[in-house]
Amino acid sequence: MQYRVQGIVIRTTDYGEGNKIVTLFTREYGKMGVVARGVKKVKSRYGSTVQLFTFGDYSFFKSGGLGTLNHAEIIEAFHKIREDLHKAAHASYLAELTDRMMGDQEGEPFLFDQMKASLQAIQEDKDLQIIGHLYEMKMLMHAGYQPELEQCVVCGQAAEPAVFSIGLGGMMCERCRLRDPQAFPLTPGVYKLLRLFVRMDVRRLGQIDVKPQTKTLLKEMMRAYFDQHVGLRLKSRDFLDQMDKYGV
C-alpha cells in the first residue's frame, strides 16, 4: 500500500552501509518506520529529509513491516534546534518520549500537533523546561496517567490544595495531607502551572516567566510522577540531567 503523509522524524538508525531506518511520527497514522535507502551517501537527494526533528511530506510503500521511502520533501527543517546543544537535547527528549510511549500506527492527531508545536516553540526560544513539562503532561494524559488536580484524591472534596501525592496520583487537602508523608508541598505557583499544563494547547504557548524556585519544585514533581507511574528510563533525560549537573 502506498502512503503519503506529513511526519516528524523522531528516530533514525543506521541500516546496512548506506541506509537508515527512519521512525516518523505522522498525524494520521501515528508512529511508522520506513527504510530510506542510500541516504548516507553524499549525493543522496533524501539525506536532509531524514534528519532528526525534520517535518516533511513523505511517500513510501508499505506491505508488511517497514515501508520503503520513495519521495520526501522538507516542510520545516528546524535548523536552529540542531545547531544548539540545549535545544537539541530538549527536543531529543520529546522525540524519545514519543517513540517510547506511542505504539506503532496509533494515530493521534492532537499529539502530533502538540509535538510539532513544541518543536516550533523550542526553535522560537521559548522556555525549554516549560515546553518539556507541557508535552510530558500531554503524554501522561494520553497514557491514562493524568494527575487529579480538581479535588482531593483521598476525600474527594474540592478543597484548597495543600500537597501533591506522587503515589496517590494527585492533590490532597489540608485535612488529608498526612495520608502521604512524602507528598510535595503544593505552592500556588506550581499548582497553577500543573493545571495549565493539563488545559493548555502547546500551540497557544507564549513567553512565560516562572520563578527559579517554582521551576525547581515543578521539575522534581514531574520527574517523580513520571518515574512512579510510567517508569521509562530515557537516555535523553539522563543526558539532560548530566548537562544540569555539570552546568553545561
Rank of each mutant, 00 (worst) to 15 (best):
M1W: 02
R4I: 06
V5F: 04
Q6K: 13
Q6V: 09
G7M: 05
T12K: 14
G18F: 12
N19Q: 05
K20S: 03
I21G: 02
L24R: 05
Y29H: 15
G30P: 04
K31I: 01
M32A: 13
M32K: 05
M32G: 03
G33I: 04
V34D: 03
V35R: 12
A36I: 05
G38S: 04
K43T: 14
Q51L: 11
Q51K: 09
Q51A: 11
F53M: 06
T54A: 12
T54G: 05
F55P: 11
F55W: 12
G56H: 06
G65K: 14
L69M: 12
H71Q: 13
A72I: 12
I75S: 01
A77K: 08
D84W: 00
D84T: 00
L85G: 00
L85P: 02
S92Y: 10
A95M: 06
T98F: 10
R100G: 00
M101L: 15
M101V: 06
G103N: 11
Q105H: 15
E106V: 02
E106H: 06
F112N: 02
K116V: 10
K116C: 01
A117H: 09
S118I: 08
L119H: 08
L119P: 02
L119E: 01
Q120G: 12
I122D: 02
I122Y: 02
I122H: 07
D125S: 10
D125L: 00
D125A: 02
L128M: 08
E136H: 07
M137I: 04
K138G: 06
M139N: 01
L140S: 05
M141R: 13
H142W: 10
Y145W: 00
Y145A: 03
Q146W: 05
P147F: 04
L149V: 13
E150L: 11
C155R: 08
G156M: 02
P161C: 05
V163Q: 13
I166A: 09
G167D: 12
L168R: 14
G170D: 02
G170F: 06
M172H: 10
M172E: 08
C173E: 09
E174K: 13
R175E: 14
C176H: 12
C176T: 10
R177V: 00
L178S: 14
A183G: 04
P185H: 02
V190N: 01
Y191H: 13
K192F: 13
L194K: 03
R195G: 12
L196N: 10
F197W: 15
V198N: 03
R199C: 09
V202T: 14
R204N: 10
R204F: 07
L205P: 04
G206K: 14
Q207N: 13
I208H: 04
D209C: 00
K215L: 11
T216Y: 07
L217A: 10
L218M: 15
E220M: 08
A224N: 11
F226E: 06
Q228V: 09
H229E: 06
G231Y: 06
L232G: 05
L234M: 14
K235D: 02
K235T: 04
M243N: 06
K245P: 01
Y246L: 11
Y246P: 09
G247L: 11
